[in-house]
Structures are given as C-alpha cells and as structure tokens.
Simulated scan of single mutants.
Amino acid sequence: MNDFMTVLAAAAPLASGWAWHGVVMRRHLSAARRDPLSGLPTRATFERRTERALARGPHVVIVMDLDGFKHLNDLFGHAAGDEAIRVTAASLNDALSTERGSVAARLGGDEFAAVVPLRDRAALPWLLRGLHGEVTAPFRHSGRDLAVGASIGACVTTDLPAPSLSLALRRADEAMYEAKRAGGGWRIADGPALTHTTTSGRRTGRPGTARRRAA
C-alpha cells in the first residue's frame, strides 16, 4: 500500500503537467481560429462552420465592407483604424445576437461576412437595416467621436441553384459592391446570375444585378 501511494504521489505532478498542457493547447487552437484584432472567427474557420450550416436549410449570406476606413486610418492613425475594426466586430455580434445559429467572421482588412439562418424572408430588410445602423454608429476614440460607413450585400441561398457558400459569397459581394458604388447602404442580390468579373480580388459592379434598398 505504501509503495502504491509513493507511485501515485510521484505520478501526480506529471498528470497535472499533462492536464495543464492540454488546457494550453486548447487555448492555442482556439486563438488560432480567431482573428486577433476583432476576436471573430478567421475565414477558414468561418468557411468550415458555414458549409455545414448551409446544407441544413435556407440561410442569408452577408458580405460587409467598411467605407471611409482608409481615410480614417490616414487622418487619425492606425490605432483609430484598429478600434474601428474592434467596434465593427462588436456591432456585428450585437446585431446578430438574436439570430440563433448565425456565424460572423472577419475575412481580412475591413471586410466582414456573416451567415444567418433565414426564418422569415420578409424580415431580411429589417435585419440588414439594423446591421447597417449598428456598424455606422459613431464610436469614441482618444476623446473624439469617429465613424465609418458601410456597404452591405446579401444573398439568400434559396435563390441559388445549390446551397454553395462560395457562390453565395460571390453574389453577396456583387450586391455589396453595387451598394458601395451607390454611396453605401445595403442590397440584396437578385437571383443566381454572376454578371461581374473579378478585379484585384473584388467584384466589378454593373448596374441592374441587385435590388437597392434604403439604408
């Protein structure tokens, strides 16, 4: 019995060490799946989670790009730009907090995306209007009230030939670009057609491919 207790006492620190190692590894893995500035999932994590979600039913795929972000960076410095990214992420989470099953992400730079279960298509304009209002609200930084604009595009997966995330993102990006060309706001993509070509990783807009909605 004494020998067993001796072995157990000797093994306890080792077991404790491995348990702590497991906690640290899980923390590192969780951190790797999230953008360090915004705290939102990275693009790769977003794509893995949403591909499965889209197969389970209708969703709306949203792409959002900040307007005036470079000007804010140039005028007030990169710290202000970083704060704008953090505030935008918080606003995105807040706007989607009641949408159970939604996933939001920072795709890179000042571009964000979200996938939201579509329970009532008639409520989609309300959702996009609310999101735009949250993101463009002024925020406080270094004693100043600052703000950025936003262009938002949305694509409903039931408008597509198949529930493809890549296709939905491209259609939402087209609608977002149309909104940006019109000075910001939000739009919902019309149908599955892809009528734009890619320029420098972005979609080049052409009139008539998305319905404009008032912001």
Rank of each mutant, 00 (worst) to 15 (best):
Leu194His: 13
Arg213Pro: 02
Asn93Cys: 14
Pro138Val: 07
Arg119Pro: 01
Leu40Trp: 06
Leu127Asp: 00
Gly39Cys: 06
Ala15Tyr: 15
Ala189Gly: 07
Ala172Leu: 09
Arg119Tyr: 05
Pro138Tyr: 14
Val24Gly: 07
Asn2Leu: 15
Arg129Trp: 10
Arg48Gln: 15
Gly133Leu: 12
Thr195Asn: 13
Leu75Ser: 15
Phe4Thr: 12
Gly39Ser: 07
Arg140Lys: 10
Val61Tyr: 01
Ala172Ser: 02
Ala90Ile: 08
Gly109Val: 10
Pro58Phe: 01
Val103Met: 13
Gly17Tyr: 13
Phe139Thr: 01
Gly109Ser: 02
Leu14Tyr: 13
Ile188His: 00
Ala89Trp: 09
Pro36Glu: 08
Ala189Asp: 09
Leu194Met: 13
Met64Leu: 15
Val60Glu: 00
Leu8Gln: 15
Ser30Cys: 02
Ile188Asp: 01
Arg33Glu: 15
His196Gly: 11
Thr88Gly: 06
Gly191Ser: 09
Pro117Cys: 02
Trp186Thr: 05
Pro138Gly: 09
Glu174Leu: 10
Leu124Met: 02
Glu51Tyr: 04
Arg213Asp: 10
Ser97Thr: 10
Glu99Asn: 12
Arg170Trp: 09
Ala9Asn: 15
Asp35Gln: 05
Gly22Gln: 12
Ala137Val: 04
Asp67Asn: 13
Asn2Ser: 15
Ala80Trp: 05
Glu51Phe: 04
Phe139Val: 08
Arg48Leu: 12
Leu124Phe: 05
Leu194Tyr: 12
Trp20Phe: 11
Thr6His: 13
Leu37Ser: 09
Asp35Pro: 01
Asp173Gln: 07
Pro117Lys: 06
Asp3Phe: 13
Asn93Ser: 15
Arg144Gly: 07
Arg33Phe: 08
Met25Val: 12
Ala214Gln: 08
Ala12Lys: 14
Ala84Trp: 00
Arg48Cys: 06
Leu124Ala: 04
Leu146Asp: 00
Gly184Asp: 02
Ala104Cys: 11
Ala114Trp: 02
Thr197Tyr: 11
Ser91Ala: 15
Arg26His: 12
Ala113Pro: 03
Val61Gln: 00
Ala137Lys: 13
Val63Ala: 10
His21Tyr: 14
Val135Phe: 00
Leu146Gly: 11
Ala9Phe: 12
Ser200Ile: 05
Asp65Trp: 08
